[in-house]
Design a binder for these strands. Structure first.
Lengths: 342, 342
DNA sequence: ATGAAAGCGCTAACAG
DNA sequence: CTGTTAGCGCTTTCAT
């Protein structure tokens, strides 16, 4: 038995719709796009046909004509994803709302791959590019000869004429320190990551500036080290030795804070009663798993992504846009580790 | 002074190339694509012109003609990203190699948004869709009336005729348990997440089956609870009470294992000397931050993504592909928490 | 109010 | 060996 000449899943074209509605292609187009004037009956007939055939305009054809693709590229080097994922999702969120689709590229922090992907994105005629990273360290921009706007999110270009948007690490340090002071602490130590990281330096600067405003100095030296729990454990001992009267520790990351918490406990210092503890990142599995749950600073990564996307949209739309490095305010997330029990 | 009629950044078209090389458009096309025969000199002239003008074929035009888009959609519901990100990057990796670009969509686990994004992806004429999740729990498929193939990665469709690829949780449980037995342990307890999770049940099943093979039973009850450190801490006490002679604990997640480690230490049990400890996930910040560093099971999430992508490519290519639920073997990552000091 | 025709950038078939 | 032509699906004048 020969099967009927069933139309395979070839998507319906406007031509099919026009034929089904017994109108010309041009009329069908107008009906579908609400353009031009025509008899209601005609329009309805076309729309009904489109509906029935499950017609969807081919975006390639539309884009070809309009000279637009309604796509942007999202280039990330942070395979690990801890930081860039929230940024990416924020960006995707803001772009998706505007009917812009996002091409995802993972460069694995490899400049060769990055170059390759940029090529591909441009070949695809993306209308803009968002570059995200895992560190806020300045990095060389991806070039200015690009035919589309570029924004840097959670990373910054060394080029002042690029637009970069990063967390306000300094402000985050200020927030945490103010909070510690507000709970009545005055001997505040600081344990953080490598001094080579701008984020570490900025957070520390926020702390010292805020302490200075209150006429205070950090308890002990500021301890730069690594972004690890192990360093937190070690550093806590160093700090306790250098400043035995320490009554608060602000840490450059939640991981470090957990290490500090552990050592404090083992040395018989109660958190928060004897020593208040604040982290940075609001990395929930870390912060909530801490004993007690950790007060920390949230960098609003999603917001960074959203702002980057909006900026990109503006640039694509040809609006005048600022350049330079911009920051997004951080937010304090108070938890038990700084709550003074009465 | 009138500025010269500078060509704005309008990308060069094949027409420009043809004109610059003084050939017809058709000839230019052939030269650029290595199709057809022609004088070397002509070909070179065209290629040189293309080079000089920075010509890139417009993928929209190519796709329009070929009826293909060389894009696939990646739909994730796991905004948190802990599990789906490695899967996504693995998929992106496998697809990128094949010149396929990936549209990223975050549904935030919201069926409405999912529906919306599917619509958008189909409107964009993606050639296939990968659905990823944060749990391996069966979920309703996204439908069979779709005009493109779909694969489920790190989540599974309830529909047997769909193709799903998930970690081998049971095999992971077997690996961990064998390892514990190999270090000479015989009283193995198990603390894991909610029984409602298939992953928890499978990992537990791997454990009990492996113990049974050795003529053993779990030490104490299998403790189902939550995926949290806090639960690990509580459960360890329960376990120590129920089976004081326990000499190993296999945990359903690294987070749980950390909680268990903490309680063990506080109760004076040394890890690994008195009690060996194994986790699950190989979530490095957790596993490495543990004291001592945690032996754990890696689910090979990247591989899951890669395989999903390859399967999708095969399906797109029209090759016959299997359906049903498939698993990717897990791998043991031995660290100090199970190393018997001599 | 509707239809015909041109053209977006490209490739493929066919002439010359 | 090269040029011409048709057409992918769609929108947009411009006739009718």
């Amino acid at each position: 038995m020969a099967s009927p000449p069933e139309q395979v899943a070839r998507p319906a074209t406007i031509r099919d719709v026009a034929a089904a509605a017994a109108v010309s292609i041009g009329t069908a187009s107008k009906a579908l796009n609400g353009r031009g004037r025509m008899r209601d009956e005609t329009r309805d007939r076309v729309l009904a046909a489109a509906e029935r055939l499950g017609f969807r305009p081919n975006p390639l054809a539309q884009g070809l004509l309009a000279g637009r693709t309604y796509t942007v590229g999202l280039v990330t080097g942070d395979s690990y994803g801890r930081f860039s994922i929230p940024v990416m999702l924020g960006a995707e969120d803001a772009l998706g709302a505007g009917q812009i689709s996002v091409f995802l590229c993972d460069t694995r922090d490899d400049p060769i791959r990055e170059r390759h992907y940029l090529d591909r994105l441009l070949a695809r005629r993306v209308e803009g590019i968002i570059v995200t990273g895992r560190r806020t360290e300045p990095r060389p921009g991806i070039g200015h000869d690009l035919p589309v706007p570029v924004v840097y999110a959670m990373t910054q270009s060394t080029d002042e004429s690029d637009y970069s948007i990063i967390p306000d690490d300094r402000g985050g340090g200020v927030l945490a320190t103010r909070h510690l002071l507000a709970t009545g602490r005055t001997r505040v130590g600081h344990v953080t990551g490598p001094e080579g990281f701008q984020a570490a330096r900025e957070r520390a600067a926020g702390l010292t500036a805020t302490l200075a405003e209150a006429g205070l100095e950090p308890a002990g030296e500021i301890l730069f080290g690594e972004w690890s729990e192990e360093w937190g454990r070690q550093a806590a001992d160093i700090l306790l030795h250098a400043a035995p009267d320490v009554d608060a520790v602000f840490c450059g990351s939640d991981q470090i804070a957990r290490g500090v918490a552990e050592t404090l406990r083992e040395r018989g210092r109660r958190v928060p009663d004897d020593v208040a503890l604040a982290g940075f990142d609001n990395w929930e599995p870390m912060a909530l798993g801490c004993r007690p749950p950790l007060t920390t600073v949230d960098m609003n990564l999603g917001e960074i992504g959203r702002l980057a996307a909006r900026h990109l949209l503006d640039a694509i739309a040809g609006k005048p846009v600022p350049s330079g490095v911009h920051t997004v305010p951080a937010a304090l997330v108070p938890r038990a580790s700084t709550r003074r029990s009465i």
